[in-house]
Amino acid sequence: MSDAIPAATIILLRDAPRFETLMVVRHTNIAFAGGAMVFPGGRIDAGDHAPQWEDHCDGSGDILQEQLAPRIAAIREAFEETGLLLARRGGAMISADEALKLASWRPRVENDDALFLEMAAGEGLRLALDALHFFARWRPPAGVGHRRYDTWFFAARAPASQIAEPDGGEATEVVWAPPGAMLAERDAGRRKMIFPTSRNVELLNVSASTADVFQFASERSIRLVEPRIIERDGTAFLTIPDDMGYPVTEEPIELAMRS
């Protein structure tokens, strides 16, 4: 069994006009979670580990070393899939106009992750690593799922003026909605979510604001979540420990990806 693939995901949040999170709908032709609603994210690539990033990031000196590349990857993936960029120029988060001027970089970075560093250096940008809050880490054990990802989840306030647009490749739609509304769409069969996504949207739903999410994340004991399969009365369940703060901790296998 191959090792889990390192990955990173970003949960972008806003409070106006109401408390909402941003999710994207994956293209139906993508092998992993095709057609599902997910948070922006993807693999941690080699370029995300480049030592030169130290000169183009805010907060890197206060972040655990093992989280540096995941945070860079999370910001990069959000930029590729939605156009939202958590980066500063001259100490201020870039504006909608500045982000729009960088849009031509999106497909280029998606095709070659090393160009993200080139863009940051050439455009005088500093990635806002300090704006990300560690929210969760999930890794299915061997034997659960045909493709395994070791995924870091980070929560962040979305740049106030920037506008999210899907890349049309990996992401075919971007959706802003309250976590509860996302879950209602899932339960009604209008949206698909895989097991880790559902659990983390449910976890978001215990909060009423972006500040609440950050506070809850700072107070919660965040441990690696490793789902496992159990059988009860002839039914197989995918389950996680019940002491990790999640409101829902198990689901029948056949519902682990709802459609």
Rank of each mutant, 00 (worst) to 15 (best):
M244D: 00
G41H: 04
A99N: 05
R106M: 03
A184H: 07
Q67A: 15
A158E: 03
P107G: 09
L86C: 08
T210Y: 07
E118R: 00
W152A: 05
A87G: 07
E80L: 03
P70H: 00
A142F: 04
A31C: 01
E226P: 00
D58T: 11
V24P: 02
Q215I: 07
V25A: 02
M37E: 00
R71G: 14
A8C: 05
V109P: 06
G41S: 09
A87D: 05
H133A: 11
V109Y: 00
L86M: 11
E231Y: 10
D15R: 01
W152F: 13
G245L: 13
I194N: 04
R148C: 06
A8K: 03
D150P: 01
E226V: 14
G61Q: 06
F135H: 03
V24K: 05
V38L: 12
L64A: 13
G122Q: 11
I229C: 03
R106Y: 03
A158D: 01
S221T: 14
A16S: 09
A158R: 04
G42R: 11
L129D: 00
G234Q: 03
H49V: 09
P252A: 13
T239A: 15
E123H: 13
E165H: 09
H49N: 14
G124T: 14
Y149M: 08
A136L: 05
A171E: 02
Q162M: 08
L22D: 11
P70E: 07
R148D: 14
F216L: 14
F237S: 00
P241G: 14
S60Q: 06
S209C: 10
M93V: 12
L129W: 08
T172H: 11
I5Q: 12
R258K: 12
Q67P: 00
R14K: 13
L125F: 11
F195Y: 15
G42P: 02
R191C: 04
L129F: 08
P179V: 06
D167E: 07
R137P: 02
A217V: 09
P196Y: 11
E66A: 12
A156I: 08
A217T: 08
D113T: 15
R220T: 12
R76Q: 13
A4S: 11
R148G: 06
E81F: 01
